[in-house]
Design a protein around this nucleic acid. Sequence first.
RNA 1: GCGAAUGUGGUGGAACGGCAGACACAACGGACUUAAAAUCCGUCGGGGCGACCCGUGGGGGUUCAAAUCCCCCCAUUCGCACCA
Length: 806
Amino acid sequence: MANKVYDHKAIEKKWQDIWESSRCFEAKNDATLPKYYALIEFPYPSGDGLHVGHPRSNTALDIISRKRRMEGYNVLFPIGYDAFGLPTENFAIKTKTHPAIITKRNIDRFRSQLKRLGFSFDWSREISTADPSYYKWTQWIFLKLFEHGLAYKKEMPINFCPSCKIGLANEEVVDGNCERCHNPVIRKTLNQWMLRITDYAQRLIDDLDTVDFIEKVRTQQINWIGRSEGAELNFKVDGTDEVIRVFTTRPDTLFGATYMVLAPEHPLIAKLADKITNMPEVQEYQRSAAKKSDLERSALSKEKTGVEIKGIKAINPATKQPIPIWISDYVLITYGTGAIMAVPAHDSRDYEFAKHFSLPIVQVVAGGNIDEEAYTDTEKGTMINSGFINGLEVKEAQARMIEWLVSEGIGERKVNFKLRDWVFSRQRYWGEPIPLVYCEKCGWQPIPESELPLELPEIDDFYPADDGTSPLSRATEWVNTTCPKCGGKAKRETDTMPNWAGSSAYFIRYCDPHNDKEFVSKEVADYWLPVDWYNGGMEHTTLHLLYSRFWHKFLYDIGIVSTPEPYKKRTSHGLVLGENGEKMSKSRGNVVNPDTIVDEIGADAFRLYEMFMGAFDQPIPWSTTGAKGCKRFLDRVWRLQDMLIDKHAENGIRDCLKVSIHSTIKKVSEDYERMKFNTAIAAMMSLVNDIYSVGSVTYDELKTLIILLYPVAPHICEEINENMGYTEPLHHTKWVEYDESALVENTVEMAVQVNGKVRGKINVASDAKQDEIEKIALASDEVKPFIEGKTIRKIIVVRNIVNIVV
RNA sequence: GCGAAUGUGGUGGAACGGCAGACACAACGGACUUAAAAUCCGUCGGGGCGACCCGUGGGGGUUCAAAUCCCCCCAUUCGCACCA
């Protein structure tokens, strides 16, 4: 007899030990086996330890991994740590402890927490991005990018706190103020390393058609890259040789361009300083704009601000009329050319600006009500007030205008992307050193590959230098080196790489994590890649996903990998919220620690609840009592052992459970694949309820149930399997198939509707013909009162509904 | 401001355009127990004694049939780089 309640602590420990010692979840680099590569986003080992959000993604792909093994695949389900990063560095500064020590401590904690949850990771391939044997290859990829001209230096602004003398991440800027000292943050310009991701913009859009990403992820990638077609053209600055170059998606509206706007950082302002009559005013505006963060400039300014640049005018190439030039921070230096032609009649932001500063508004497309708002429709409208394109429709006018611009040498067709190049420098200690050296004679030089990894130097003080440069600049011995090219005196780059670097190709390194000769062997990469299924959070669907696709494409171009896309399939999970429905956070005091839950109800029940709590892709509030309900279900499964019928007396699947079991196999098999874990579990609960109603269970019936349940709750299922006397563990057992013919019942219940309202039920043979069904429905006692004395106009028989229209 | 999503019982949620509320949680009633826990059985959207009627954020529409499709509105959440 089994105990009423199973001892989750003993059982889970037992099976975790067996899995670890038998190394049964280690993937084999054997190309003769069918492979499956399941990937979760590796965690950032924060000081707070694992939270209940992590297991949601992990359990989902653990279910898939375990099911795939039972289906005969050689499965790679790896784990590692994205270990470089800001929080660790800040903690290091605060506690005067080396970030490497903190990182090791955090990783150890994460590892033990993950192991307690019984995920079937291949622990032999564990990696950490902060490990020199790993970041050697991050640096190697950077050198390849540099070698291929995809890394370059550019003046870029950073958030800088003048009081703390430290560069800040956007995250550390709160309402324009420094998160620590609350003083205003300014924008300081530094010469930084950039990666040319924009070279890949078109391919990053096009190749989305070749992969299976959930729709919202795909949409977000496309919107982020932001392709737009239009024209780039020059406006002459009157009385000078200078031109203002602009990009527009609406070349058709050129006749309506009544003024121009430059971004505050536009270089032309300095160039024409001697012509500008109100320079102090302009400079004052530039200074105030520099104080604003990107976020402020974009979000907060309902009210448009700006200053007219007096003393210079631009010439509208279509009307030949002089138009004023303004400076305003609603124009961004980072997008397009950093200057726009303003067409207030047909762009809402220009309209708002023109109204605010009483600038002329000239309508050039008929339609809308220009007195009220800009008319922005690009689908319909006829050109007016537009010289040679008058009377044309918008689309036609665009084509015609571009033709004209080209023939006059004023401009040309142009595709523009919102996507910007990737700022790759950080003025921080806890990141990969950038493996370049600056020589006065030879310029920037890569260090030889043989010197990789370029390890972080040991320093005591991780605080950035007073001028905002990286703490590495204080490691004088490390910084001063010789030029790899000429052998003369040279200095190392002291900026480090961003957090994103280590996570941009980690899934490739998992294929061959111990290779110290190359990043990955071609053979092994060809076997494992692409990743078959990648699940992660929505918060990474723009940056990380795009960066890693970019790196992968680059590695494809230089022949390291053989697939243009890294991930065949990408899905996303919803956030686990606190019990109060708010985002879990320390400050809200609603954080749930998985350790206490596992202690109380065990890993199996915890995993089960994480999957049962709601739709996988939706954010769901945590409920500890709900989790306990899942433990109750597992206890119920456990007690089925008491109902077992002697194997020799009766076995097989009995008729009383045949339909129930086969439909559950079908439902569970399909729902796991569609990530509908909550309904898969509900189906198993129903099956258990059915077995309880029957009152007994055969070996084959129970075996089927525990095979279905095993991917979610592996420990208890292995234990029951062993108790039943099976010597082969479930992870070596074949997945169950359902029998289509067993799903069909002899009779089906159909609802009979009269004018769409259910009035009765009938039972008919499942192979009954339509006219037979109609006859039975019309004769039904429940239905009769509703059709008597009425004319039957139509009878519709669909699936399990009969609708009588009277 | 832009973009995306969501809105169903006390709660989490089910529902290829086809019987709204599966499966759970909570609550309540009962059995078992000296008692409690556990377990088992039952009730559980609202109204009506009842036949029935009303119900998926609100208002229209399409359809034999709408939580589901279309239009308008409201609310909430998330993301954001005013994207020219």
